[in-house]
Structures are given as C-alpha cells and as structure tokens.
Design a protein around this nucleic acid. Structure first.
Lengths: 335, 335
DNA sequence: CTGAAAGCGCTTACAG
DNA sequence: CTGAAAGCGCTTACAG
C-alpha cells in the first residue's frame, strides 16, 4: 500500500492542497500545521511520486544520455561527470545505448521523448543533418560531447582535435624527430580522423618537414591497429623515429609490437598517445599522451544543459583545453 | 504544443478511450477506426507520455542502477549488458552513482523510489544489514551484481571468488611454481578480499605447499599497489617465482615494477591477473588472467529483474563461471 | 492561512 | 465496437 498526500491529509485533517504546500515549502501556512504534516509524513514513510509531480509540472527533472554501445573506458568518466552534477542539481539521468555506430539513435530519441526528459546529452556519436533534425524536433536543450557535426550551429563540447594533433606532432618535432608517423587513424572519421591528420600535416609543414602518405597508417583506433601499424612501418623500412598515435590503445599496440620486434621504446622509437586513459600510466614504459578532460566534459555538459533548462536559453559550444602528460615514451632524438 | 490522445480523438471524432485502445493494440475496434486513428497519430507526430501512462498503470518500466562512483573499466561492461536487455524488453534504465564506497546508497535509493522504478540492480557495493533493510523496504525486485552481503538470503550474481582464486593459484602450481605470492588484496574486503585469500591458501595447502603471511601483499587492487607489492617482495628476497594478482591493474603494476627492476616476465617471475579487462591483452607480455564475464553479469541481472517484475517472483542467486585466459605472463618453472 | 476544484495525459471497468 | 466517467497522485489558480 503506497501512501500518498491524501493519506497525510486525512491523518492531519487538512486538505491535500495544504499538504502539497508544506511538502514543497511553498509558504503560506502556519507553523502548527507545517509541523503536524511533516511529522505525519515522516511517520507514514511518505515518498513523493515524481511521475505525478512531473505530469502536472510538465517538467521531469530527467536528463537523457545517448552514447555508443562500446565500452571504451573514457565513456565511464564522461557519464560519471554527467551524473554527478545532475545528482547535485536534483536531476536524474536516464541512459541509453545507441549501438556501435549510433545507428539506434532515433530509437533512443523516441524513448527519451516518451519519458519526457528535460534535456539531452549525446556522447561521441557523429551526427548527420537528418539526425540533428530529429533531435531538434524534441525542442529541448541538448549538447554533443566529444563529437561534432557538419552543421556549425549545433552546441558541442570537445577538445580541438586539430590543435591537439598539431601539439602532439610539434612535441615530437621539438624532441628532435624529423621523420614522424601517424598511426591508427580512420580516414573517414571527420571528427577524430581528418582533423588529426590535418593537424599532424600542418605541424610537419610549419617545421619544414616533408610529408609522405606512407607515414600514415590507417586503423580503427584499436590496440590491434597499433600493432599492425608498427609491422607495416617495419616492413617498409620507413625510417620513422617517432609515432603519433591516435589513441592510447593504438600506442599500446605499437609498444606491444615493438616488444615482439625487439624495437626498444623510447630508445629506438618514440611514441605519443592520445586520451590519457588509465592505460597510459600502466604502459611499459609509461606513455606520454595528449590528455582529454573527459570527466570535466561530462560535468560541463550536464551543467550547461541544466542551466539551459532553467533559463530556457540555448547551450553554447565550448572547446576544452587539452594537455600533454609527459611520461617516458618519448626521448630526445640525437642525430 | 505537445499533442495528446485528446487531439487525436478530436481529429478522428472518437473518444480518447478508443484512441487509447488502438494505440495500445488492446483489440475491440474495427479496422476502419484503427486505420484512421493510426494515420492521424502519425500525421500529428504523436508521442505518448510515459509518465501519465505509468501513473495509471502503477508500473514505470524503469529499472534503477546503483553503482560506485569509480570509473573502473568493467562497470562499463556491466552497465552495457544491463541496458542492452532492458532496451530489448521495453524498459529504460536510470543510473545513479552512490559515491566511492557506496555511502550515498540511501540517497540514491530515495531518488529511485520517488521515480517509481520497478526494479533495482546494485553493482559492486558491499551491503550491510541496515542497507539491505532499506532496499527491502521498497518492495520491488532487486539483485546485487559482483558483490555480496553477510545475509545469505539476498539474491546476487557473481563469480565465486574463492573458487577463482583457488583456480588461479592452482594454475601457477601446475606450472611448477612452489613459492607463490598474492598481491594487491584488501584484507578488510569480505567480497573480493578474504575469499580470494582463502582460495589461495587452500590451493597451497591442497598441494602440500607451505603458506607464509609475508607472501601476501595488501593493497587496494590498484596499479600502484601492484608496483609496491613487487618492491616489497624484492627487498624481502622472498624468493617467489610467481604472483597471483587480485586485479589486472595490480598485475600491470607488477609488470611495470619488474621492468624498472630488471626482472624479466615471465622468465624470472610469472604473473596472473584477475578480471581480464582490456588492459590484459595490452600488457607486455600479454597477461594471463582469470576472466570475469561482466557483460553477461549485467545481462543476466537485468533479465532476472524483468522476469521477477513480470512474474512477481523473487530473483534467485546465481554464480557465474569464470575462465582462465592464457596469454604469455606465466611460464613453466624449471627446478 | 486553508480548501474545493480543475487539470496534467493517460487507462480501464462499466454500459450500451 | 464505442463512449462517458472515474481515477492514477500530484499542483495550483481561485475564493474565502
């Protein structure tokens, strides 16, 4: 038998309106009745029904997350960040997985619309115009995290991949490297693919180094892609002395293959990773890597959404700073 | 302007009751009206309000997850598994983090009760009797994943830590090791601590090997704990030839420290990990480890909860099988 | 300061 | 096969 404000009203011999008022601290009742009602609520173990409340208030205090179904470690940090600030602000989070490439996005959207979420955060799914339309049609605040879209009006929070790739490459150049590879990148990925390639190329160019297409090894950001990349570099005798890896996992793959091939890191080959996930410090040698602030990304995203909900304002795009965490996988190259 | 069944009813010149019936496929209406209503709903872009529906049906099709606030990688797999089957069964998932040691559990519980979740899955938080009482008081199906409680009536799904530790230790013994360490374990952790210690001891004993308290290095399952453990073994000249690590991260810590100390793995020291997370295959050398089926755990947990909700039956405890994934960190010891 | 009443968007006996 | 009506558990003008 679940107990409602009606039960409290009966016990306190007041109307449900009054009960509602004191339970919500709406003001406009004397201390006596307040005390009585609060005490009875306590005694009866009353718990409010958020569904009923949301129904009349037309606001659910729910924020929806849509993310890919892959268990890459950094999603955990993003989600942690989101839920943490949601909780602090009195919101709850409803989570949905949109398949590996986000192909179930529309399905998730429908569910979240039916659940009447007040806001939406979409993690790491590259969006096309028709999907943007579907999202817009909900008419609620939303933000993209760690991804983007060709439509430049859309609010997003991420690190500038071009800049970060530029910085990583420059870091290697500053360490004396003149022949630098790029490993694990997906050419068709316009969010984490092409911008990083461009940043890499630009850094090379700005420092008077020539670029060779052979120095880029494509892949899917995975450990295996990293291993394959090094084997490829090896058989081609490419002569690279350093490699910019498009993820930490790719970097670990390079390190693993290097071990198999008897290539010493960083003595024979320097490696820089991307993301700075937990595996970076666990590598042997510990991995120098571009750090992305995933947790912060989640926190900011959620914070902005809640702000937008409460102020009925639009969310604004924000580029987050990255950072180079220096460990031991890059060495100064001596000519 | 959000559109409701009333709008559809008006447009179709029928009652909301009829609209509701066809939208729910309840039967008892002719094809004509059905077609008309469905078409109008489509045209108007109708989307049902789950809050209103839940309110009258007294069932939300919502399942709540409570988990610790730490971003250990395997939580992602568990949550993935849960949400996947929830989605398939028409349920949605609301996620809450209960702090590092689950100290905000009661807070989460209250929120989930207000949200009227139909079922509850609690991940990796060791529960005491008073917390169990709080959970029981919701009177909804629940299950614990990858954790347990002193109260043996409580439904849970996990791997048998004692058995797994026994198997890991035995595996090392079968590979010729006679002096085996245990690293990274928390003595005060009755779920992943003491049972693994006991399993380890028992395996030693069953194979006629003596046990020395010095061969156990306490820790918090972390990478750092692993490093410290190996340094301790080293300075004590303990003479171990293999070490059973209480997590993959501890194992990586051992490997990392070994590298610093010039100890070769597996030539000088064999290492076995626990969990078989993604880092296991990325280690150099690739890590042999006890595998826990995290994703399966999430799937089974969610499935059982939904079953319990629908059949109003209690969830039954299930122990999941573990597995030893052999890679290259353990070698046959020659005397 | 307090209550009666309407309403949020649905579902479901009960009649016909 | 279909509709009128009540009700799920709340909140909130509107009166007094």
């Amino acid at each position: 038998m679940t107990i409602t404000i009606k039960d409290i009203a009966n016990a306190a011999k007041v109307s449900t309106a009054t009960v509602s008022r004191v339970l919500n601290g709406a003001g406009g009742y004397n201390e006596e009745t307040k005390k009585k009602i609060l005490q009875i609520a306590e005694e009866l173990g009353y718990r409010r029904n958020e569904m009923a409340r949301s129904l009349v208030k037309k606001s659910s205090n729910l924020i929806g997350i849509i993310m890919p179904s892959v268990s890459t470690i950094f999603y955990a940090d993003i989600v942690n960040g989101i839920e943490k600030v949601a909780q602090k602000q009195g919101f709850s989070v409803i989570l949905s997985h949109a398949g590996v490439k986000g192909n179930r996005l529309i399905h998730c959207l429908k569910m979240l619309e039916e659940r009447k979420v007040d806001g939406l955060v979409i993690v790491s799914i590259p969006l096309m115009e028709d999907q943007i339309q579907a999202i817009e049609s909900l008419s609620i605040p939303y933000v993209l995290l760690s991804t983007d879209t060709p439509n430049k009006q859309i609010p997003l929070i991420k690190v500038d991949d071009y800049e970060a790739a530029y910085a990583a490459t420059k870091y290697l150049i500053n360490h004396g490297h003149r022949k630098i590879g790029l490993a694990g990148v997906d050419y068709s990925d316009r969010v984490a693919g092409t911008p990083r390639i461009e940043g890499y190329k630009k850094a090379l160019k700005d420092h008077g180094l020539s670029f060779s297409a052979n120095d880029i090894k494509a892949g899917d950001y995975s450990f295996t892609a990293g291993k394959e990349a090094l084997y490829a570099f090896r058989t081609e005798k490419s002569g690279i002395t350093a490699v910019f890896c498009v993820s930490d996992e790719v970097a670990l793959g390079i390190i693993s293959a290097a071990y198999e091939l008897g290539i010493k890191i960083p003595e024979d080959l320097s490696v820089i990773g991307y993301d700075n996930t937990r595996v970076a410090e666990m590598a042997v040698p510990p991995l120098t890597a571009i750090e992305q602030p995933f947790r912060l990304m989640g926190e900011k995203g959620c914070f902005k959404i809640i702000e937008a909900i409460q102020q009925k304002a639009a969310v604004k795009t924000e580029m987050l700073p990255f950072n180079i965490v220096e460990r031991a996988s890059v060495k100064h190259w001596k000519h």
